[in-house]
Design a protein around this nucleic acid. Structure first.
Lengths: 202, 202, 202, 202
DNA sequence: CATGAATGAGCCTTCATTCAT
DNA sequence: AATGAATGAAGGCTCATTCAT
């Protein structure tokens, strides 16, 4: 019980750290552990105790997003229409990257700090691969597209949306760019653009 | 004569600095003025005299590439086929970004260090805008695409090619990604994919 | 019963701490109380309760060795041959230092953390002094050697063995160096080497 | 000429750094570059510019001593009496180690920071080896003594002198210990002690 | 114009110690 | 008696920028 209290405090600190990190990442600032400590009103050591490296903290930030994406992908596999399933998954992926800066940073990093991150990346790649395979089988996507291309392309779209400076909001822009890309990924017989155009859900 | 001499020396130094900076950028290394000085066998002060900031140097590096792109765009305006003209211009843009790291860095930066850079960016935007307008007029591109989107999208494609880790080389990958994007940007009645597919020139 | 229980637990913890510390010292690692706690599966506070400083723990580690040495010295006093007695004592001392890293560390430290350490150091000095006095009386050792020199010289031999990098093992090397010290590096006329050469026991 | 001045300043700073480092080492304090900078009234960067690591600075401190030792050894090779030559060399070595703390620290370190240090260590080992070989040939030293033992033994003697706490000064003590080592702690038959006893020079 | 030594803020990280529970 | 989270001083190092010559 005594330790429960202390654990509670520690948990609060941890949350505080994560919250502050979120702020920094959202501001587009570099994630520095000393910074986090100062902003959180904690000692540096405390932050280091919870997160051994800035990368670990960043990946902790990204984890829920990655998990949500993976879950969404799994659900998409149940969709009858393979083309639509892939499209929805990709849209979600791009939206997440644009909404949550930790995701794009983590996705761009080659080396992972947490095993959980590696695991999630693998899962996502696997899910994406299966969605793509099904779409291929249905003739819904251009044949030269491989599983290796999915992540880069989604990162590219998200990046494009970030580069874009304009009145419209970022998510909106990202969606529009993805639509442009998708309608290229899908075969171009007349009327074929519907899967994504028709789908305001996801 | 002394001053002529000095001017000549200065010019030589400047070239040397640029050459070394090119090396560093091509190596993917961060562009640090101290570094440049050491590698160039010059004093740091000399480098600072020629280029007040690392950004200024970077933009100087990028300038020829930007100029070439602008020139290419001007020439493309002479093309009969507006769709093809735009496609070629975009391909060139992407290839340049992937080939020359200074270009992608400069393009991604919001604030410019040199007026010349701002000018060139404006010129490029104008050229791209005109190519796009003509393509629009010809019904060659999707209507929702605006001039503001061109730069972000090209940056995104280049970024995607950089993120991609695989056997194929980067330029090849970038071309493939651009093709995917283009075939989405262009209306999708049958056979319409030719402009880019048929065009190995550019 | 509760308090008996606690006392038992405390005793067990103490032993655990000492055991872990031994491991660390044997590995040549610095003795850090946090480290000890982690390895022992205990809280840092517990370790601090038992040992206020790392030095105290180290000296606790060294205590049995020092006691054994003192006991050995006492027994050596019973030896008929004063020269042999001293030689055996010195050999033991050196072997102990080389075998048990806590001993050399403690011996080298000027200030003691535990009174027990001070006491043992004094006892050892006394025993050594008496062995030396007897050897002096028997004309078995060089006259300029004083009781103050014994500890430094043994530390020096042990240190030399640690510095030596070679195929032979450390104890072996230390023994050889002690023999050299006792007999001299320079060859001597016959018979004079006996005290140590004749003594394979100890 | 302009740069001559600056170089002069730099040289003065360098000397200042070395002087401060000497102080610290002589005080037995750990050699920390930040410390050196503060004491020298210089920026940290300046110290780092001159000495990339604390080890490099330490070895710079030790270099003259090592050089002097090597030179002395070379001269000793000219001595007719191989036993005396080795003895004198060893005495010098021990004296140097005791007098200059940088020497003992450098000698004890396995890895060198400066190539010059490695070179000097090698030279010293070579010289010592040759002096030893000649002494062996003359039957002046115990047969089991190898070149590998010289450095450890001298370090051991110096260490012993440092451990010794007493009225006499450190150099004096070290000399006495070396004599003990050379001649042996145990008395010997007449005449055998001369090589070193007769030699108050060196 | 060129030089390059000097600067020092600022980031990273470790670790001995305390103290509330 | 045990816990272990928190602390923050302290040490290590880098790098952009200045300025005296």
């Amino acid at each position: 019980m005594t330790s429960a209290h202390r654990r509670k405090d520690a948990a609060r600190n941890r949350e505080r750290i994560v919250a502050v990190a979120r702020e920094l990442v959202d501001e587009g600032a570099p994630l520095q552990l000393n910074d986090v400590a100062r902003r959180a009103g904690l000692g540096v050591g405390t932050v280091y105790r919870h997160f051994p490296t800035a990368e670990a903290l960043l990946e902790t930030l990204a984890t829920p997003g990655l998990e949500a994406l993976a879950a969404y992908g799994e659900r998409a596999l149940a969709d009858d229409d393979p083309g639509r399933a892939l499209a929805r998954f990709l849209r979600r992926t791009v939206e997440a990257q644009v909404t949550d800066a930790s995701l794009s940073r983590v996705t761009a990093m080659a080396a992972d700090a947490l095993p959980r991150t590696t695991e999630l990346k693998r899962t996502l790649a696997a899910v994406g691969g299966r969605l793509l395979d099904r779409a291929h089988a249905a003739g819904a996507v251009r044949p030269d597209l491989t599983g290796e291309d999915l992540v880069p392309l989604m990162c590219g779209i998200a990046y494009a949306a970030r580069v874009h400076v304009g009145p419209a909001d970022r998510v909106e822009t990202a969606r529009r760019y993805l639509t442009s890309l998708l309608e290229g990924l899908y075969p171009t017989t007349a009327g074929q653009r519907e899967p994504t155009a028709k789908d305001p859900s996801a």
